[in-house]
Design a protein around this nucleic acid. Structure first.
Length: 271
DNA sequence: CTCTTAACCTGGACGC
DNA sequence: TGCGTCCAGGTTAAGA
């Protein structure tokens, strides 16, 4: 579920409640999510102050002097700040209780998310090899153009490859390709420099707008205060097969490519 | 290297 | 009401 805007929305919602707070205790209701939760989470996090909450790609890092808790929301995860006596619901897997009387609660029905640990000064293997942040200056059309030469895989797959650029998932890839007028099925290596410039601009604009609207909620996602994101109402093609293209009124098409549903306008996206 | 596919897991929607 | 099938925002591991 959560792509960059949803993770960033979560980070911003957690910030005022979590940053600078001391952890009182950690409660694991199961020993694993996608992977086993390392012992450092239980052993090193309690009594530590959370100095900062950072986002890298779709990961959140809770920084302490002893190291950083590394979280990923997977497809269905959410992190909320709640009063500590809030009743537990299904799939509430982890509580990080704070001295403030509130609890940071990790809920994840499908358990594709993870909670790992990064030692001070180290880079977790999952963070090594990630591409640039899409909202940074390191990401632009020329970067995409140069990196894509010779690539035969579809440009949508290329755009969702976290070693190419981070944070773009199935929803925002479809939206950006539509906005840039690029066919999701075109080989990445066949897209022109001009189209990549438009695509990079579209990625930046679409992600920034989605963050401003608190992310997209299709099913599970809620922000740190439990509120759904409002960006779903602004999607142009994702999930809208059969409805008129907002630009030319041709019916938006859905097809499955590389095992993922993709949505596009066959008239507007030919390049 | 690049690319493709299966796998992980649960729940909701839909057809019969 | 119940059951089978398909689908879902992500990522990795394994194989070609």
């Amino acid at each position: 579920m959560p792509e960059l805007p949803e993770v960033e929305t979560t980070r911003r919602g957690l910030l005022p409640h979590v940053e600078g707070r001391r952890v009182e205790r950690v409660l694991l209701r199961r020993p694993d999510l996608r992977w086993p939760i390392p012992r450092e989470v239980e052993e090193l996090l309690p009594e530590r102050r959370i100095d900062a909450i950072r986002r890298r790609a779709k990961y959140l890092l809770l920084d302490t002097a002893a190291g950083s808790a590394l979280l990923h929301l997977g497809m269905s995860g959410s992190l909320r700040v709640l009063p500590e006596d809030t009743p537990v619901r299904a799939h509430d897997h982890v509580d990080i209780a704070l001295e403030s009387g509130r609890v940071l609660r990790f809920n994840d029905p499908r358990r594709f998310g993870c909670l790992l640990w990064q030692a001070p000064g180290e880079t977790h293997p999952l963070l090594a090899g990630l591409g640039p942040e899409p909202l940074s200056g390191a990401f632009d059309g020329d970067y995409l153009f140069e990196l894509s030469r010779g690539r035969k895989a579809p440009v949508k797959t290329f755009l969702m490859d976290q070693s190419v650029v981070v944070g773009v998932g199935n929803i925002y890839a479809a939206e950006a390709l539509f906005t840039a007028g690029v066919s999701p099925l075109r080989a990445a290596g066949k897209v022109s420099r001009e189209r990549y410039a438009a695509l990079a601009d579209a990625v930046k604009a679409i992600l920034a707008h989605a963050i401003a609207r608190g992310g997209t909620t299709l099913r599970d996602f809620v922000g740190a205060g439990g509120e759904p994101g409002e960006n779903g109402e602004y999607l142009l093609v994702y999930g809208r097969d059969g409805t008129p293209c907002p630009r030319c009124r041709t019916k938006v098409r859905r097809r499955v490519d590389q095992g993922r549903a993709t949505y596009f306008c066959p008239t507007c996206q030919k390049r």
